[in-house]
Nucleic acid binder design. Sequence first.
DNA 1: AAGTTATTTAGATATTTGTCTAAATAACTA
DNA 2: TAGTTATTTAGACAAATATCTAAATAACTT
Lengths: 90, 90
Amino acid sequence: MNALFKALNDPTRRAILELLREQPRTAGEIADYFQFSRPTISHHLDLLRQAELVTSDKQGQFVTYTLNMTVVDELLSWLLQFKPTNESKP
Amino acid sequence: MNALFKALNDPTRRAILELLREQPRTAGEIADYFQFSRPTISHHLDLLRQAELVTSDKQGQFVTYTLNMTVVDELLSWLLQFKPTNESKP
DNA sequence: AAGTTATTTAGATATTTGTCTAAATAACTA
DNA sequence: TAGTTATTTAGACAAATATCTAAATAACTT
């Protein structure tokens, strides 16, 4: 849970997640969307992987990152515990 | 959104939220639940207030903190954007 | 008015974090 | 084999963070 909140506490990492929402991408493709160096993006991807928000798969020289949102269910239920009744869901 | 993720990225602050889930409490009552100094707890409460996760109300010498989870809806919908279909809701 | 209680503010400090450049791996290409 | 490309690892460093003690506010009590 700690790793999850930590991973989400950065706008670049959240943007990476939104990017991967469309489709899996290689590390290089992801890096091209940002103005940070490749090592910086690599580090962000590492933190996302530690939080199990993404999985990585090496194919040849390329490492493809894929969104893994199963862990988000945990976060969702943690949050829903604060909603008093089920008067939500717009 | 940044302040929200930042506020949630700390186990003590998350514990404070869970404590306030039961009922509003004064700063002192909250501090008694933890082994950190009162200034430290006061600082955590400040960050929670900046994220609008709690509201504070001064009554005499006491400052009562109350959970404010309206802002969580924003987070919930951000998260739900990653859930492919609406196969959730336990 | 003086003392006590509740809380916050102000610095100080050690740790964590995000970023960079340089170097190391690993895989492909000619 | 030598060179190029994709990615990560290793340090270094400035900025942010969590914590503390001491001091400042503010409200209550005698």
